[in-house]
Structure formats: structure tokens, C-alpha cells
């Protein structure tokens, strides 16, 4: 009971959770840096490579954000909410069955145009989405500028900018998650 009481404010809804921890799911297209962000949030290490398809199974870890402890779940890449391959099915099943409290949709900022349809699907599904524009350093180098504030207004969801491999924006991402969870609990 004590553990639950400590984590009380972290609960976003009345849902009883087996592990007692609120859940964060990382989803997105292959090779956008989900595993890097997973490693940053949990302090664990899952294999990271520069090619699509490195993660084929779900990895789970724990991480502290604000004063709460979360269960964080890394998923194989998927291109849309409608799966084609087995790995994509694994990732979607997690969204359907685990009721994550926060879904971080991680995209490669360079290819935002191609990745937004998936964001729209996640919003349509009523999932608690935060959009993470990752690999921003490369986008900037290519001369791509994104108005994250405007995007936030247009989509009606939080938008965070990161360059996870360089450890940039991770603090802001954590802050955003903490605010988001707090706002739903309130």
C-alpha cells in the first residue's frame, strides 16, 4: 500500500495497474531513434544502430520523470496504425492492450511530412500522444526549420524537439511528460 501512496499523484486515471506504475510507450517509424530515447529515459541499454529494424521485440525498463516512476516500453518500428509485418503487429498490440498513459510518437524531423499521417492516426485513436521531433540536429543542418509551437496548436497535442543522440531536449521531454501526466490527473 505504501508504494502506491507514494506514486499516487502519478496515476493518470483510476486504472489499477499490475506493476503499480504508469506506462509510457515509445512508437514510430523504424530508425527514428526510439531506442536512443528509451536508453536516455531508463538508463538501460538496448541495441541502437543506424538501420531500420534493429528492435524486433518490446523492451521494458523503468525511469524516473519528475517525482514519478514510469514503466517505459520501446517498440519495433511501425509505419502506420495498420500493421503489415509481424514486428508492426507486436507494436500495435501493445497500444491496444496495455493502455499506456503516455504515447511518445517519435519522428525524424527531416521527414516530418511523411510521418505526420501516423500522428494523426494516433490522435484519432484517442491515445495520449506527445509528438517528439527527434534528429533535429540533422534537420537543421539540412536547412529545415519547424515551428513546433504552431504545430502544437494545429494538432492540439504537446510537441517536443529533441536530438536524442546528442542528449539534447531530453530534459524538456521529461518536463513535458511530467506536465502532461499532471494535467490529466488534475
Amino acid at each position: 500500500m505504501g508504494k502506491k501512496a507514494n506514486n499516487k499523484n502519478c496515476h493518470t486515471s483510476g486504472n489499477e495497474r499490475i506493476a503499480g506504475l504508469p506506462k509510457i510507450a515509445l512508437v514510430g517509424t523504424p530508425n527514428v531513434g526510439k531506442s536512443v530515447i528509451f536508453n536516455r529515459l531508463t538508463g538501460k541499454y538496448v541495441t541502437v544502430s543506424n538501420y531500420p529494424g534493429t528492435t524486433v521485440e518490446i523492451s521494458r525498463g523503468k525511469g524516473h520523470i519528475g517525482h514519478c516512476e514510469f514503466e517505459i516500453m520501446d517498440t519495433p518500428g511501425m509505419y502506420s496504425l495498420m500493421p503489415i509485418t509481424e514486428e508492426e503487429r507486436v507494436a500495435r498490440r501493445l497500444l491496444l492492450e496495455e493502455k499506456p498513459d503516455v504515447v511518445l510518437h517519435i519522428v525524424d524531423a527531416k521527414n516530418i511530412k511523411r510521418m505526420l499521417p501516423f500522428t494523426l492516426q494516433l490522435i484519432e485513436a484517442g491515445l495520449p500522444v506527445i509528438l517528439v521531433l527527434n534528429v533535429m540536429d540533422e534537420a537543421e543542418r539540412l536547412g529545415i526549420k519547424i515551428d513546433a509551437y504552431k504545430l502544437r496548436q494545429k494538432l492540439g497535442i504537446p510537441v517536443v524537439v529533441t536530438s536524442a543522440a546528442l542528449n539534447k531536449g531530453i530534459k524538456e521531454l521529461k518536463q513535458e511528460v511530467a506536465d502532461y501526466v499532471g494535467s490529466i490527473a488534475a
Binding site: 516530418i112 511530412k113 505526420l116 499521417p117 500522428t119 494523426l120 492516426q121 543542418r141 539540412l142 536547412g143 529545415i144 526549420k145 519547424i146 515551428d147 513546433a148 504552431k150 504545430l151 494545429k154 494538432l155
Partner: peptide, 22 residues
């Protein structure tokens, strides 16, 4: 249909400097 909306949003918020060195 989704792509149309995504692209129209993207066009509104993305600014691309074509001259940048790629």
C-alpha cells in the same frame, strides 16, 4: 485523405532552406 491533411499541416509549419548544404 490523411496524407492530404498531414501535408497541408507540414507545409504550414516547415520551412526549408533549399540552399543548405546537403
Amino acid at each position: 485523405e490523411r496524407q492530404k491533411l498531414a501535408w497541408s499541416i507540414a507545409d504550414d509549419i516547415v520551412e526549408e532552406d533549399k540552399a543548405a548544404d546537403k
